[in-house]
Amino acid sequence: MNLKRYLYSLTPGLTRLVDDVSVEDYMAVDLSLQQKDLHTIATSSSQFFQSYIDSYLHTHKKKVAFGGYLEKRNLYNRSPYFTSDKENPRNIHLGLDIWCPENTAILLPLNGKIHSYQNNINHGDYGPTIMVEHQLKDQIFYTLYGHLSLNSLDGIKINCELQAGERLGYLDDAEVNGDYAPHLHFQIIRDLQGNSGDYPGVCALKDLEFYQHNCPDPNLLLKIV
């Protein structure tokens, strides 16, 4: 079966990644280059950006902001980790972000086992990261959870079996999570290409065709909208 159709078939409706949130609590947010509101704040500052997200949710009376798949962003211009290749900067987001407070519990959407984990400490990187392998019927794919807390990695064991709905970890603040407002980066990956504990979550335009195929839209599984 085509992986996109397969992912969509796995869940009947909203599949929660964060605890105690209903579909009515979510609000889509646009963080692309075209979002004029972002031109008025210092997106290089995690503190100012968190204020923007907090104000956005308060205005719309929602708990969680989400979005960002294949979104072209200027958030990454602040870090040489994404801009070292001046001709081909990496600024297209390959996962789905869930913006909510630090210490929010993150839940596993499907049965799986721990593939790998790592604290990715580059400026603007994931910070503490967990990757889970899913083998359901004849399909194998992976999910990545970035911007977690350091204690989310405590006691974790490779190949440990986990059940859908089980707590995987917690979100943390900018001091730990790569210097962002608290959020989860959630990404689906077909082929890890030999990576362990890390996988690109942002790509350059020249590589978009490959990564769009290798990292399908997470909302096929989550069905937030």
Rank of each mutant, 00 (worst) to 15 (best):
L96C: 05
L144D: 00
R16S: 15
Y76E: 08
I140H: 04
Y180E: 01
Y211K: 08
Y8P: 00
F49N: 02
E24P: 00
T83C: 11
A28W: 12
K157M: 13
D20T: 12
G155D: 04
D37H: 11
Y170H: 12
Y76T: 14
E102G: 09
H39T: 14
L108Q: 00
E175G: 11
Y180T: 01
A181P: 08
D54S: 11
P216L: 01
P128W: 05
G67T: 07
L110G: 09
Y76D: 04
D138G: 12
F141K: 03
R5H: 13
L150A: 05
F186M: 11
R167A: 10
E71V: 02
S55R: 14
D207L: 08
H93V: 02
S152L: 02
D19E: 15
T83P: 09
N74Y: 12
N77Q: 14
E161I: 14
P128H: 03
K72I: 06
V18Y: 11
H58W: 13
D217Q: 09
D138N: 14
L75T: 07
E175M: 07
H213I: 09
S84P: 04
L220F: 06
G13I: 05
H93T: 01
L57K: 05
N151C: 10
I53C: 01
V21P: 00
N177P: 08
G197T: 11
Y211V: 08
M131Y: 01
Q212W: 06
P101K: 09
V23M: 07
D19L: 15
Y180W: 13
A28I: 12
V225H: 15
N77P: 07
L220I: 03
K72V: 09
Y170L: 06
H185L: 03
F49M: 15
K61N: 15
Q212L: 06
Q118V: 01
L33F: 05
